[in-house]
């Protein structure tokens, strides 16, 4: 790649264009490989598509830009502390619409930090919840028949289903 490029343009799955700095894009392994393989100079007319919807991609890029300086240079403890607080605020998002897609995107883009953060957020949402509460939080329909439900109840008497 040409060293003069500081930011690249990518397309979301909805077809919207987004700019992401090279150092931020490096947080994702596939994007990093792409940077190494593909010419991103201005005369290169092909724009890569990332199969993530616009709403999610905005958040992913926001995360990358925030974390890139620390990932590239290492940071002091106070920075790490501040970043943790930022992460918590960042993850306050709609569970159904965004968190799921963030998790899928982090997995697909091989972003370890974001993946851990999203998994932990989902796990924290389930902690201490009953089965029906988990269904409500994650907008999942109970698709067990009443017989299956009865069987589950018998198998796991320790679980509450109500």
């Amino acid at each position: 790649m040409s060293s003069s490029v500081e930011a690249i343009t990518v397309l979301s799955s909805d077809g919207d264009e987004f700019k992401i700095t090279v150092s931020a894009a490096k947080l994702s392994k596939p994007l990093n490989w792409m940077l190494e393989d593909v010419c991103f100079s201005d005369d290169c007319d092909e724009v890569p598509t990332i199969e993530v919807n616009s709403k999610t991609l905005v958040k992913v890029i926001e995360y990358c830009e925030k974390h890139a300086p620390r990932a590239n240079s290492g940071a002091s403890d106070s920075d790490a502390e501040e970043l943790k607080k930022w992460d918590i605020e960042f993850m306050k998002m709609d569970v159904k619409d965004i968190l799921f897609h963030i998790l899928m995107a982090a997995n697909y883009l091989h972003m370890e930090g974001l993946y851990d953060l999203a998994c932990q957020t989902a796990a924290d949402l389930m902690k201490g919840m009953t089965v029906s509460q988990i269904r409500k939080i994650f907008h999942i329909k109970n698709d067990f028949s009443s017989e299956e439900q009865e069987q589950l109840r018998r198998q796991h008497p320790g679980c509450s289903f109500d």
Partner: peptide, 25 residues
């Protein structure tokens, strides 16, 4: 150029791939 990947349109938590569910659990 497309980086082959997921269709992130109409899917939801019930479609979570097994290894992601495992990571959460």
């Amino acid at each position: 150029m497309r980086v082959g990947g997921i269709r992130a349109h109409s899917i939801s938590w019930t479609d979570l791939p097994n290894h992601l569910l495992e990571s959460i659990a």
